[in-house]
């Protein structure tokens, strides 16, 4: 049992909480689904309690408004004023990822963004939104995205690079978030596990003395992971803004 508790991968395991099936697809309610529901419920609760529409904002309302302005400025500066029609989408992405990451920082909580399926679906949503909206708005003009203003001699080569970079976007977009979150969780678990193992090996006194170093490491990694939680949500939303800007203005980037 101690060995299972020390396994740094065990935290990513999914357990069924309730069986559920549609056709041949297993859509059971799992611990992952529970965390998704909890994070959406928490976001809603936060926004519900702190948007009292008062003219002079309190602390909670200020926090909501700061987040709003933060994402709105990010989108406006990356994609311009027309980009604001995607604001609900970008804000939803930012809050969804931020809350999933932060909830995952609570011990024994499951981190939804530590699964590549989740981040990949989020990245693919952005990818297809860019393609569908870009073609809808610009028609064939959207292909100018792959035909940049460079000397004719290097144009085919740059065009090839543009195509490769465009289609590798969902991969880099999703793996960046997933790898950061998963690696951070493994690291904390490994260093925290060292403390337990040392106590097991050298007894309470000797193990506690020997465990000071991994304990300090765990202590230092925890705030770093909180920072990573925020930064990765920010980076994901920022890249989304930049990609959406391509759908709006494929000619110049």
């Amino acid at each position: 049992m101690i060995a299972a508790g020390l396994d740094p991968i065990a935290q990513f395991e999914i357990h069924k909480l309730a069986e559920l099936k549609i056709g041949k697809y297993d859509i059971s309610f799992t611990n992952s689904a529970l965390m998704m529901v909890v994070s959406v419920a928490l976001i809603s609760l936060w926004l519900l309690l702190s948007s009292k529409k008062s003219l002079i904002p309190g602390r909670a309302q200020s926090l909501v408004e700061v987040s709003y302005e933060f994402v709105a400025d990010m989108l406006r500066s990356a994609a311009g004023k027309e980009g604001m029609k995607f604001f609900p989408f970008v804000f939803a992405l930012f809050l969804y990822i931020l809350f999933a990451n932060l909830l995952g920082m609570i011990p024994f909580f499951f981190t939804t963004t530590s699964h590549i399926v989740v981040t990949m679906v989020l990245a693919l949503m952005v990818f297809f939104l860019v393609i569908i909206y870009g073609v809808y708005k610009n028609g064939f003009g959207f292909l100018k995205l792959f035909w940049p203003d460079v000397p004719m001699a290097v144009k085919p080569f740059v065009c090839l690079l543009e195509i490769i970079s465009f289609f590798s976007r969902p991969l880099s977009h999703s793996i960046r978030l997933w790898a950061n979150i998963m690696a951070g969780h493994i690291m904390i678990k490994v260093f925290a596990g060292f403390c337990i193992m040392l106590v097991g090996a050298f007894g309470l006194v000797g193990g506690s003395l020997a465990g000071i170093l991994p304990f300090l490491m765990t202590f230092a990694l925890t705030p770093l992971e909180f920072l990573v939680s925020f930064v990765q949500a920010y980076v994901f939303a920022l890249l989304t803004c930049i990609y959406l800007s391509d759908a709006l203005h494929p000619g110049h980037h």
């Binding site: 999914i14 697809y25 992952s32 689904a33 529901v37 399926v117």
Partner: peptide, 9 residues
């Protein structure tokens, strides 16, 4: 668990 995660996400 891919299907359930995609569904609930």
């Amino acid at each position: 668990y891919f299907a359930t995660q995609i569904f609930w996400l």
